[in-house]
Design a protein around this nucleic acid. Structure first.
Lengths: 190, 190
DNA sequence: CAAACGTGATACAAATATGTCTCATGAAAA
DNA sequence: TTTTCATGAGACATATTTGTATCACGTTTG
């Protein structure tokens, strides 16, 4: 082998990373572009992922696993629902390409993956409801809208970092402030 | 012809509408899907748009023209920069598929179209700066972030309407509140 | 009615994308 | 050194997408 057993893993990883990078920007990209971004040939890519469908399935699986892990970790370490959401939010920003991939790639998802995806969304909705009770969000705002805003501001923050308009920390702070102030209980509205 | 001269136009229009509808959801969709959504055959689609590239170029042209018109109209009728942005925002929500198309489709844009697109973005940035001076937005928040938020909340609002979670009016109100309250001058932050 | 026209249907050709196979090379492992 | 193995390179076959050409049918128009 070229160097050692570790590199075998990292070739596959490089392809996966390239997959996220390329497909999150252009879901219609072809295999050659992904291989090229991973700095391998198409032949090598096929040695690890026999077909495009297999690669895409693996990407979906990993994306969900990573996002799940980020959220689960936040649940354990955070005291309140508001904290869970904020910590999840912050942890999810760097996973923006995963998020983008799941959102934009037209996947004919495995049923299990599909279920997990819905589960993840449902969990977020529950935390949002809990955060409403804590006074983090205005009770009168539909949970669906808060959820949409959460998702899109997450993506906006990642996009902002990617464009080098902000650092990850700045983006997290700005986006979270936008979300909580924007959807918090009204103080002096008229 | 099938009915009359008006229907000839509307066949082309149907294809264009189908193009926005299909491509905004799935930028990788093929011509057959667009034709099918427009309820014509692939052959007919090719009679109006000889190639995919021509169709996509036409879509880009129209999307920009419509968005331009919405913004320009808001500029004429609105008194303040804040009003311009709010009215533009409201007018742009129903054009969410156009927005999504321009954002997601990987276009090798005509130089003129490209320039117009950049111009549109620059104009928005200028209105945001003006709105800052009016006190609509907090001076300390980077204009780039306000612009990102503007764009993504616009898309979130459209998405929300599309999913039938809200009516267009509700979505506009919610999104605008989220934007202005979220990015407005701090009142009682601690 | 007869001509003109838009469309569907279908076959076909060309271009692109995808997947398989073989061979040579160079680096690591034995 | 000799073997093993991951990879690049490239040829090849297949599948999908895209674009073209032709014909038949129905409708409108004159």
């Amino acid at each position: 082998m070229k160097t050692n057993a570790k590199l075998v893993e990292s070739t596959a990883d490089a392809i996966v990373e390239a997959g996220f990078s390329v497909l999150s920007r252009n879901p219609g990209a072809n295999i050659a572009e992904i291989a090229s971004a991973a700095q391998v040939t198409r032949a090598t890519l096929h040695r690890y992922f026999p077909s495009r469908a297999v690669l895409v399935a693996e990407l979906a699986k990993r994306a969900l696993a990573e996002m799940d892990a980020a959220v689960t970790s936040a649940c354990h370490e955070s005291a309140s629902a508001g904290d869970v959401l904020r910590d999840s939010f912050t942890a999810l920003i760097p996973l923006g390409d995963r998020h983008g991939f799941l959102a934009h790639e037209h996947l004919q998802l495995d049923d299990a993956i599909e279920a997990e995806f819905l589960q993840l969304q449902a969990t977020t909705a529950q935390w949002i409801d809990a955060a409403k009770l804590e006074g983090v969000f205005d009770q009168h705002i539909p949970t669906e809208w808060i959820n949409r805003t959460y998702d899109y501001l997450l993506y906006a923050a990642w996009d902002s970092v990617r464009r080098q308009e902000t650092t990850p920390k700045q983006a997290a702070k700005l986006a979270w402030r936008t979300l909580t102030t924007g959807l918090g209980e009204a103080h002096e509205q008229h």
